[in-house]
Design a protein around this nucleic acid. Structure first.
Lengths: 153, 153
DNA sequence: CATTTATCGGTTATAATGTAACTTTAGGCA
DNA sequence: TGCCTAAAGTTACATTATAACCGATAAATG
C-alpha cells in the first residue's frame, strides 16, 4: 500500500473540517475537490468533468457546477472569475468562507494566495458610502516566478 | 435643439481623451460607450447588443465584444467579472487604463468606484514572491445605499 | 424500525457568454 | 490614386452556466 500524497491529505483534511461544521462531504464533492487538489492549478468546470470521466467517475456539468458552488461557499475552493476557472483553497479554507487575494499564473495555471490584509483599505469607503458588500473578489492574472524564470532562461 | 445630457457629455469627453491618446474613436465604439453611459449601470454584452438594436444601430455580438475589449483596454469601461457585465468608467478613465475597485449593486446594477489605494497592500507580497501581475481585478458585489434604504423602508 | 423530510445527484435540454476566421469597408498616408 | 492598416460586418461555432424535474440517499422523528 502506497502512502497518500499531499493532495490526498489536503482533501482529507478539508473533508473532515467541513464535516465538523455540519455540512455533508459527499462522494462527488470529495471527488471534485480531489481533482482540484491533485491538479494543483486552475481548472475550468468542463476540465473537471473530463478529469472525473478519466477517473471513471463521470458526472454531468450541472452536477459538477452544483458541487463547485458548494465548495466555494464553504471556502474549500475559489473561483477565478477572470478565467472562469476553479482551484482548491490552499490557505485557510478549512476555517470557512473567506476573501482571498488570488495570484493566478496565465502560463501554468498555478494559483497562490496573497496573505495580505485587504479588508481594511476597502472598508473605509464602503462604510462612508453605505455600500454593503456581500462578496468580494480580488485577483491578479499574471506570471508566476517559476514561469518568469523559464522565460528568461 | 435640446441640451446634451450628462451621459452624452461623458461620452464626448471620453471620446476626445481617447483621440488625443492616438487611438481611434469610431462610430461603433462611441455608440457602445454611449449606451453604457446612458444606462449608468452594469450591462451584459448581449444587453448592449439589444440596446443598439433598439437604437437602430444593430451590431452582432462579435463586433460588440471587440469594442468592449477596446474600451476596457483604454480605461473607458470596466468589466465586472463577477457578473460578466460591463459599465462605463466614471472615474479616471479619461487618463488611461487603471485598476479600479468596483462596488456593484446586485439590485439596481449601479457601479461605484471606490477611490481607495489598493496597490500598496497588494504589492508587498508580489514583490517578495516574484509574481508579476498583468491585470488586477478588485470588485465587491453587494447592495448600494439607495437600495438598502428602499429595502428597509 | 418505519415514516417523513430534506438534501443530493443524475439527467436532459437549453440559455448565456464569448471567439475564430474570414470578408468587406473605411481611414490614413505616400 | 493606390496602398496599407485598422475596424466593422458576418457566419458559424465553442465555451460556460443554469433550469427543471425526478429518483436516490441520508438524516430526523415518532
Amino acid at each position: 500500500m502506497t502512502e497518500p500524497c499531499s493532495a490526498c491529505l489536503s482533501t482529507e483534511a478539508a473533508s473532515q473540517a467541513i464535516s465538523k461544521r455540519g455540512a455533508r462531504m459527499t462522494g462527488l464533492r470529495r471527488d471534485v475537490l480531489s481533482v482540484l487538489h491533485h491538479q494543483g492549478r486552475a481548472l475550468g468546470a468542463y476540465e473537471i468533468v473530463e478529469q472525473l470521466e478519466d477517473d471513471g467517475k463521470s458526472s454531468a456539468p450541472a452536477a459538477v457546477y452544483r458541487v463547485l458552488d458548494f465548495l466555494v461557499e464553504n471556502g474549500l475552493a475559489h473561483k477565478i472569475e477572470g478565467l472562469s476557472a476553479y482551484c482548491a483553497c490552499t490557505g485557510s479554507g478549512v476555517d470557512g468562507p473567506h476573501t482571498s487575494v488570488l495570484l493566478v499564473c496565465l502560463d501554468c495555471g498555478a494559483v497562490a494566495e496573497n496573505p495580505c490584509k485587504i479588508d481594511a483599505p476597502l472598508g473605509g469607503f464602503n462604510a462612508q458610502s453605505g455600500f454593503k458588500p456581500l462578496s468580494t473578489t480580488v485577483e491578479s492574472l499574471g506570471v508566476c516566478a517559476a514561469c518568469l524564470a523559464q522565460t528568461n532562461a
